[in-house]
Computed example of a mutant assay.
Amino acid sequence: MDGNQTGPVSSGIPSRHLHAPGRSRSCGRAVRLGAERGRTGLLLDVRPSGDSSSVALWAARGESEAAQILVRSDTPLTGVQVTAGALSGPSGAVIPASAVTVRREYNHPRISKVGAHQSPPDGGTAYYDALVENTPQTLAANLTLPYHYSVRVPASQAPGTYTGTATVRSGAGDVVVNVAVTVYGVTIPPADRSTFR
């Protein structure tokens, strides 16, 4: 499956659905959240919009799927960090917290572009690219900070829908993002066992 598609893919299994971003007021500050595909390139100026905040992913057993959680505020924020835990499923089944990873996306400040590439709206040279440690950050007003949220579904996981949350923490308070992962009853073999040539 192509983990970068929305809607149905060739196997008939949709890979991800991202609901509209949400707005939460905490401590008098407006924190806007959004979601994007796991591999969509983002710029500082992207603006979340909408009135709800949730992420839904679809995956086979043995597969990893991801989305990006976007954080933006009308005023500066301190201590920005995204945390996530286990996902609960049918009959007490759990995707463990160890299978969920959140990394901050690093904004490269000076990129030398070769060829025809999208330029930032401000005409600058800054692009988000590398995934780095999820340590608390300071976020300037009216800029967007993306986080890469990834779920690796164990090969033995029971099929069904698993739910949980990711929490955007900051000095303005916590904002919860609801997460749902649908696991299908098919298993992707490890790469070293593939017969594809």
Rank of each mutant, 00 (worst) to 15 (best):
36 E>Q: 12
84 A>D: 03
96 P>Q: 01
124 G>D: 00
129 D>I: 10
137 Q>K: 05
152 R>C: 15
19 H>S: 10
4 N>S: 11
122 D>I: 00
76 P>Y: 10
54 S>Y: 08
27 C>P: 00
71 V>W: 08
47 R>T: 15
174 D>R: 11
55 V>K: 14
147 Y>N: 03
76 P>R: 15
18 L>W: 09
105 E>A: 02
57 L>C: 04
138 T>N: 15
112 S>F: 06
14 P>W: 04
137 Q>W: 15
22 G>N: 04
184 Y>E: 11
44 L>P: 11
86 A>E: 07
105 E>S: 06
52 S>G: 10
118 Q>Y: 12
66 A>Y: 03
21 P>S: 10
45 D>A: 12
71 V>I: 10
108 H>R: 14
25 R>D: 04
125 T>S: 14
76 P>M: 08
77 L>Y: 10
134 N>L: 06
101 T>I: 03
109 P>R: 01
178 N>E: 10
96 P>C: 10
90 P>K: 07
195 T>N: 10
68 Q>I: 00
141 A>T: 00
78 T>S: 11
33 L>D: 05
106 Y>H: 14
98 S>F: 03
90 P>W: 05
138 T>L: 12
27 C>E: 07
157 Q>Y: 02
45 D>C: 05
162 Y>L: 04
104 R>Q: 09
49 S>E: 09
89 G>H: 03
115 G>S: 06
44 L>H: 13
35 A>G: 15
22 G>P: 07
160 G>P: 09
167 T>G: 05
67 A>S: 14
174 D>F: 03
35 A>S: 12
189 P>V: 00
76 P>Q: 14
148 H>F: 14
45 D>E: 13
53 S>G: 12
135 T>P: 01
84 A>K: 00
62 G>K: 02
34 G>Y: 04
35 A>F: 01
77 L>F: 04
45 D>S: 06
30 A>E: 08
194 S>W: 08
197 R>I: 15
84 A>V: 07
65 E>F: 05
30 A>L: 12
